[in-house]
Nucleic acid binder design. Sequence first.
DNA 1: CGAAAATCTGCAATCGTTTGCAATTTGCCC
DNA 2: GGGCAAATTGCAAACGATTGCAGATTTTCG
Lengths: 341, 341
Amino acid sequence: MGEERHGRTVVRTITDLARLAGVSPGTVSRALAGKSLVNAKTRARIEALAREHGFRPNQMASGLRRQRTGVIGVAIPLGHDTRQQISDTFFMTLLGHLADELTHEGYDLMLRRVVPDADGDWLDRFIGSGMIDGVIVIGQSDQFARIEEVAEGYRPMVVWGNHQEGQRHCVVGSDNRLGGRLAAERLIAAGARQIAFLGDATAIEFAARRAGAADVAARFGLPPLVTLPTHLSPERASEEIAAHLAAHAGRIDGIFAATDTLAALCLTALRARGVAVPGAVRLVGFDDLPIARQTVPPLTTIRQDIAAGARGLVDLLLRRIAGEATESLILPPELVVRETA
Amino acid sequence: MGEERHGRTVVRTITDLARLAGVSPGTVSRALAGKSLVNAKTRARIEALAREHGFRPNQMASGLRRQRTGVIGVAIPLGHDTRQQISDTFFMTLLGHLADELTHEGYDLMLRRVVPDADGDWLDRFIGSGMIDGVIVIGQSDQFARIEEVAEGYRPMVVWGNHQEGQRHCVVGSDNRLGGRLAAERLIAAGARQIAFLGDATAIEFAARRAGAADVAARFGLPPLVTLPTHLSPERASEEIAAHLAAHAGRIDGIFAATDTLAALCLTALRARGVAVPGAVRLVGFDDLPIARQTVPPLTTIRQDIAAGARGLVDLLLRRIAGEATESLILPPELVVRETA
DNA sequence: CGAAAATCTGCAATCGTTTGCAATTTGCCC
DNA sequence: GGGCAAATTGCAAACGATTGCAGATTTTCG
């Protein structure tokens, strides 16, 4: 420690700096932490030296001692459909906003993709690492049970996803069922009679969207929804959609897609078959991603307010870290009418 | 420590576990680290106990002692165009692949968005935090000089971006100039005579793309490129593009967009003006993002192999961490012909 | 059987920072 | 100037894991 370099003492530790300033390490620590216990002049001197030598206290050591790291973990569980989510526009936008919010609150963000099937222990591992002060889980995937279990004993966790009656873990998410209702109402208003749901209805959020749409179909006395399951990755989904359209040609006049991404693919497939949209088939998406404005014709969709979601996640998490008990936050989605329905 | 809970001793530290196993903390540490110095039976016993109590060593303490954290920092400098990049599909896809690769190599990923204008010190702060073993910077933005300066004294850093003659920092990126050449050649082959470059040519990568296109225009004896500067965020870009098209109506017959995202917006704007593509105006994008397949008509573009880029970044970084000196890695982009040129 | 070699295990220092407590200095008032 | 309170500072013990070294145990072999 304290070797010469560039003709200037290199100061790596608070002790180095203390020696330079002629005080004890404790005082340096207090000065840099901005505590009121140090003399103003002493502090100024120490701060100047720190700046001059580009010194920054080691966060690992600080974290260890204070039992708080200033890092929030963000876990993205990937379902069977591995490759998808991390490049999915919706999740990525959410992640971007999360990064903003967390930075703003002075936290760093540790990102971890997890493949629950391959590693049943993912959540405990993340939490138990001692590296994070709290965790945000983006998407429940098929891990609802696991998350519930952990929520029992670990408070600082908030999850993006769907809310179920009586669940224990704190969740932030859209009212998917309501979104589904809005979508179906619009399809019907635009003239649809036989509605199909496009997407993997085993995913819990999607199931809720579908259920909302089914509610409305039933209320209007229409035939039950047809489900057209797909994967989320564009490559596979394209083929699957084409197959579905071929199989149900002429028998479906309204499609509610689980996602704008799927809706856009579906639109391309419909065009390829020469089906008029919204003339012969009406189409509604979900999310209101940028792509929704760019399709031809532009997509009618259900908007989720991603920024508000991120704010909610961070806000609730910080309150839980502070020890508060918090309710889940359910955001209302909103119908955006463009031209496909 | 070692209090009762759920009728089972809670073991938080390696010392707790040692007490339970009737050995010393040192032995537990060695057993859990999989060192060969512990007796097979002792190790088995310790491992069983650890599993049973869900014990995981504290990474902060471990990191402090070993002077290595197992975390790689990923910094995303945001230029003036703040909101954009983190939700930009290209960067996010790259981030996804990075997460994959790093996880695969046993590293965690710490994500930090930085606004260099507001915080001139961003890179040193990140590096000096003691929280990361190395750093990947995604995009040079306008921070070329700052990065160069830091590269001088800090080895474990790799940057995604453009390569300049004689630069010091290790970079991975596409050969943007070559990409620009490919784009221009295609535009010309498709019949363009007056080519425009769409995008912010002050960004270093974009400038290189533009330069490549300009090379080709000159070689073919065509008039110099017209530059149509835009922001990257879709909202602002839309208007700007519309204005540009209005200003240059009929005088441009080929557009090279810095990005597929811009190209898609441009296509929409062209459609709105009733301009035939590729009949009256040819259009080539860059990146080959998913949206390139979905526009109408689908976009001719220059593909960057994002996965290869991520692999390169991680590979080079790990080698630098290990102390190797490494060359930069320049990947060849590739023309993908679809229907807009 | 005994000694040397090989294998395990424990001890205690260490990583760099924070913080309770005690010691010291300074300021203030009579 | 003395005495007391307030303001600063130093001391040393944490935080939890790792690891060089030395002591203890077992194995090997002549």
